[in-house]
């Protein structure tokens, strides 16, 4: 083995007596991008939680390279909004191990905080309570929290939810910039096949009828995708980009 940051062998996630998809196997190289797609209830979020170690696999196994640092953007905000936490507090959660124990902050932490606030374009919201944010502002804050500690693996569950179109496009550029400066493996879930297809190196398509896992070039074939989705679809390339249409 190799420089695979993640090895998956015949992995199935699910609940007792209820597997959610067909077995998956993959060696994911460090620094690559994996997209996880599938219909509602196909096990996408469960797969990510399994890979984070929060749920035991239904079947099969996975192994992370040692020394991996995780960042995670959940599908929905899970921070209890009863807590009067500000955006600054939320980002501090992401770098708790870097904060001084007896002081509020230090220059290094403060610099990281400012940098991340700027990248997410939420600097004016630093002192704003989370419960007073719009959905999009909260989503940017959650992405900032996941990123601030410079993880080596960034797991994101539908990170584009609630974001306006302009920032969605910008987010891909931000990911590319992060990957250019820092060793980063991206694993993201999205229900929008076309949004993810052309931005990732590897795809895992989850479906009860069939699941696929492999390089994007291998997986993006009409017959294979139709079987996985359980619905006929058409794949074509336009200007070098894949487009998928359900028939």
């Amino acid at each position: 083995m190799n420089d695979a940051i993640l090895q998956i062998r015949d992995l199935v996630v699910g609940f007792p007596g209820r597997p959610l998809h067909q077995p998956l196997s993959l060696d994911l190289p460090a620094g690559s991008r994996l997209g996880i797609i599938g219909g509602n209830g196909s096990g996408k979020s469960t797969l990510i939680k399994t890979l984070m170690g929060q749920i035991n696999p239904y079947q099969g196994s996975y192994r992370w390279q040692s020394g991996v640092r995780f960042g995670y953007v959940p599908q929905e905000n899970q921070v209890d909004l009863l807590y009067p936490m500000s955006v600054g507090d939320l980002l501090n959660m992401g770098m708790i191990e870097d904060l001084p124990r007896w002081r509020r902050s230090d220059s290094a932490s403060e610099a990281k905080l400012r940098e991340t606030l700027n990248e997410m374009e939420i600097s004016p919201l630093r002192e704003t309570l989370l419960r007073e944010l719009s959905g999009g502002e909260r989503q940017r804050s959650l992405i900032g929290r996941a990123w601030i500690s410079k993880p080596t693996v960034l797991l994101m569950d539908e990170p584009f939810n609630s974001l306006d179109y302009g920032f969605k496009e910008k987010l891909w550029r931000i990911f590319a910039e992060w990957r250019s400066k820092h060793p980063l493996t991206l694993i993201l879930i999205d229900h929008d096949l076309n949004r993810v297809l052309n931005q990732v190196d590897y795809l895992a398509v989850l479906g009860p009828e069939g699941s696929l896992c492999g390089s994007a070039g291998e997986v993006v074939q009409a017959e294979l995708l139709s079987r996985a989705y359980g619905a006929p679809l058409h794949v074509h390339r336009e200007n070098g980009l894949f487009q998928v249409h359900f028939l």
């Binding site: 929060q54 995780f70 959940p74 921070v79």
Partner: peptide
């Protein structure tokens, strides 16, 4: 207590 799932991931 505010977000146990995320903090578990942070160790």
């Amino acid at each position: 207590s505010a977000d146990p799932e995320f903090m578990a991931l942070r160790g």
